[in-house]
Amino acid sequence: MLDTDWSDSWRGAFRIELRAEAIGLACHGWPVLPGTFPTGPENGHGNWTGPVPVHSDWADRLGAHPNEVAEWWTQPYSLLVATGKTLDAIEVGDELGKRAARLLRATGHPAPIVATPDGRWLFLTTVTDSLPERLAASSEVRWHGEGSWVPLPPTPYQHGVVHWRVKPDVWGWRLPAADAVHMVLIRALEQAENREVAGQQFVAASAAA
């Protein structure tokens, strides 16, 4: 998606899709919020780095009725969901996200997964009050808990659209236990580190030969 693609007709059609998704998520009890749009006047020229809540009092608006949600999306807003109440999200980079997703498939753990156009993966889980130290200490992992939010599909970025890697309805809208996903992410981190160490050893051995 290029910046030149943002015609009025395209924006109108996309707003309808965003509104429908927001209403559907609200009907399932997810605390959705309207977020800024990449071409909105509040974002300046080329300064937009991702959606943030439109309303300064967004925390007081959580749990809005679907009818109120429908009223919000009469404007072209991005789609956000607040974390720390109904769900949490663990954000990782593309490589770690792919590795963790493969492990989740192999173990049969259900987990809705979101991917953003800037190479970030979001694993949605039940709410927890902390991360395991192994994840908390990693620069590759960001935990979205109380007081935070994440974008949901089909939120637009300047060069792409947020999309589902695994949709929540695939698992009957069940969120996986946070600790189960944490353990899988720890395994994915360890696999990546072991691979890196093996690569370094191979390079060292080749140089010594």
Rank of each mutant, 00 (worst) to 15 (best):
A70C: 01
D94N: 09
E68W: 05
P76I: 07
D88N: 10
S78Y: 00
D94K: 11
E68K: 11
A70K: 09
N67Y: 02
E95P: 01
A70E: 14
V69K: 01
W73S: 03
E91F: 02
A89W: 01
Y77E: 08
H65T: 03
G84I: 07
I90Y: 01
V92M: 04
A82L: 04
A64E: 11
L87H: 08
E71P: 00
A89Y: 01
D94M: 05
A89V: 13
A89F: 02
E68D: 13
Y77S: 10
P66I: 07
D94Q: 13
L87E: 10
Q75F: 10
H65F: 09
W73K: 10
T83E: 06
G84C: 14
E68L: 08
V92E: 08
A89T: 07
T83M: 10
R61L: 15
R61D: 06
G63Y: 08
D60Q: 15
S78D: 04
G84V: 11
G63M: 12
A89H: 02
D60M: 14
D94G: 02
L87D: 00
I90V: 15
L79W: 00
G93V: 11
T83W: 13
A64I: 13
V69D: 05
V81E: 04
L79I: 12
T86W: 08
Q75R: 08
T74Q: 14
A64H: 07
P76C: 04
D94R: 13
P66N: 11
T86P: 00
P66M: 05
I90N: 02
A82N: 01
I90E: 05
E95S: 15
R61F: 02
E95L: 15
Q75L: 12
Q75V: 03
P66Y: 02
Y77L: 08
W73E: 12
S78P: 01
E68S: 06
G84K: 11
P76Y: 11
H65W: 10
V92L: 07
W72L: 05
K85M: 13
I90L: 15
L79M: 03
A64C: 08
D88H: 00
L80P: 09
G63V: 12
D60T: 11
Y77Q: 07
W72K: 01
W72M: 08
E68Y: 03
E68T: 15
G63S: 07
K85G: 12
A64M: 13
L80E: 13
D88T: 01
H65K: 10
G63T: 14
W73H: 06
P66V: 14
Y77I: 06
H65E: 15
D88F: 01
V81N: 01
A70G: 12
V69G: 03
A70L: 06
A82Q: 09
V81C: 14
V92Y: 03
A89G: 14
Y77G: 01
W73M: 00
K85P: 00
T83F: 06
L80G: 13
T86R: 14
G63F: 09
E71V: 03
D88G: 01
A82E: 07
Q75G: 06
I90G: 06
A82D: 05
Y77C: 12
L62T: 12
G84F: 06
G93F: 01
N67S: 15
K85Y: 10
H65S: 08
T74R: 12
P76L: 10
T86D: 07
P76V: 09
Q75N: 12
E91Y: 00
A82I: 05
A82F: 02
P66R: 05
